[in-house]
Design a protein around this nucleic acid. Structure first.
Lengths: 121, 121
DNA sequence: TCCAGTATGCACCTTTTGGTAAGTATCAAT
DNA sequence: ATTGATACTTACCAAAAGGTGCATACTGGA
C-alpha cells in the first residue's frame, strides 16, 4: 500500500525526527552551524556511520544544510535550513516538557530495563 | 553503562512517545476516553498485540489510565491521565507543524521508499 | 449449537534499526 | 616513514521493533 498517509500531524513530524540521533542533531544545530567532527564530539558516543546516515536523511528531508568547503583536509559544515528551523521551533514545547519531567521519565525508562532484567533472572 | 541520561528534553519526550502507535493513541485519547475495541477500530490497521503492548507501556509510564469495568463481556476504557494531558499539550505545536507540512513530508517519505526500490531495480 | 464479539496473552518469525570495525584520499606534523 | 586528523563508505552482525496467528473465557444472538 502506497497510502503512506499520516493520520495526525504527529505522525508526519515523527517520521522526520524519528531516528536515534536526530533529536540531538537538531538540538546542537539549533544553536549554530557546526563542522562534522565538531558535531560528532558534541554528541559524544555516536559512530560515524550513524551520524552520517542521520545527517544524510535530514539533508534529504530539507532539514539540514551541508556546506562542503572543498578543502583538502575535508571541511564540511552542517546547519539548519529555514524549514529545519520551523521544526526546531515546533519542538521547543516538547523539549521543555521533556526537560521538566526528565527525572520522572528517567525513572520510568530504568524501570522498563529493570523488568527485562527480572525476566532474565 | 546505566547512565541512561538524556541530553536534551527531546530525548526524554521521545522515549515516551516513541513507538509506532503511541502518537495515534495519544491523538485519539486526547479527545475522549475510549473502549479498547473502539480505539482499535479508530486506528484502523493495528494488530491487537501492538495496540495492547503500546497501551501497557503508556499505562506504565503514567500517560494513560485503564479502567476495567469487570463486566463479563470484557469492558475496558482508556483515557489520558493528567500527566498524559500535559504531554498532549506539549505535542500540539509539533502536531500542528506536521499537519501544516504533511504534503511535503509525505513526498519526502515516498522518496525514501523510492530510492530503496532503485537499489533493487 | 455454533459463531461473533469482548480484551488480552503467547509463540514464532521478519523487518528494521543500530553498532563495530575496517578502509579511502589527502595533507601536516612528528 | 609513520601517525593522526579530516569526512565518509562499506561489509558484516546483533538487537530491537513490529507483525501473524492462535488461544482464552464468557455471553448473546442466529
Amino acid at each position: 500500500m502506497t497510502t503512506s498517509g499520516f493520520i495526525c500531524g504527529l505522525d508526519a513530524a515523527l517520521a522526520v525526527i524519528g531516528g536515534k540521533w536526530k533529536p540531538l542533531i537538531l538540538f546542537h544545530l539549533s544553536h549554530e552551524a557546526r563542522r562534522y567532527g565538531d558535531l560528532r564530539r558534541a554528541i559524544g558516543n555516536v559512530s560515524d556511520k550513524m551520524l552520517i546516515q542521520q545527517l544524510k536523511e535530514l539533508e534529504a528531508d530539507g532539514i539540514v544544510d551541508r556546506l562542503d568547503f572543498k578543502e583538502i583536509p575535508p571541511k564540511v559544515e552542517y546547519s539548519l535550513t529555514a524549514f529545519g528551523q520551523t521544526l526546531a521551533e515546533a519542538l521547543k514545547p516538547l523539549c521543555a516538557w521533556g526537560t521538566e519531567h526528565m527525572i520522572e521519565v528517567e525513572k520510568l525508562m530504568s524501570r522498563r530495563g529493570a523488568s527485562e532484567v527480572e525476566k532474565v533472572a
